[in-house]
Measured scan of single mutants.
Amino acid sequence: ELVLALYDYQEKSPREVTMKKGDILTLLNSTNKDWWKVEVNDRQGFVPASYVKKLD
């Protein structure tokens, strides 16, 4: 499943990933309501769920 980055996000820990507004990311896990695991540029990590939106 793919998600769209709604905002820029700068990683604050090694478990997170940086994304730019408009990026298309692969959603790996959305079981946590606050932090979703995504893959971007061959890196996996977490981003705030409120910063991304699922693409239909």
Rank of each mutant, 00 (worst) to 15 (best):
D56P: 13
T31R: 09
Y51A: 10
E16K: 04
E11N: 07
N41M: 13
Q10W: 13
K21W: 03
Y51W: 06
S30F: 07
N32L: 09
L27H: 02
Y51E: 03
V40G: 14
T31M: 09
N41H: 13
Q44H: 09
G22K: 02
F46W: 15
V40H: 15
K21M: 09
Q10L: 13
V52H: 00
P14L: 10
I24T: 07
T18L: 03
A49D: 02
I24H: 05
W36F: 07
K12Q: 14
L6C: 06
N41K: 14
W35K: 02
A49H: 04
E1H: 12
Y51T: 07
L55Q: 06
N29L: 09
S13L: 10
E1F: 13
P14A: 13
L2R: 12
D8G: 05
Q44E: 11
L6A: 04
W36S: 03
D42Y: 10
R43K: 12
P48K: 04
L2A: 08
A5D: 01
Q10F: 14
L27P: 00
S50P: 07
S30M: 09
T18H: 06
L27Q: 00
P14H: 11
L55Y: 09
E11Y: 05
P14K: 10
E39P: 00
K54V: 12
L6E: 04
Y51C: 10
V17H: 04
D42A: 10
V52N: 01
E16P: 05
E16R: 04
D8P: 06
Y9M: 01
L55G: 04
V52T: 04
K20D: 04
V38E: 01
L55W: 08
Q10I: 15
Q10D: 13
T26W: 13
I24L: 09
V3P: 00
G22H: 06
K37T: 08
K54G: 05
E11P: 14
W36R: 01
L28G: 00
V47H: 01
L4V: 15
W35L: 03
F46N: 04
D8K: 03
A5M: 03
E39S: 12
V47C: 03
L4K: 08
E11T: 08
Q44D: 07
D23S: 08
L25D: 00
K33F: 09
D56E: 14
K53E: 12
E39N: 07
Y9S: 01
E39L: 11
S30G: 14
V17F: 14
S13Y: 07
V52G: 01
R43L: 06
K20T: 10
M19P: 00
K33C: 09
R43G: 04
D23G: 04
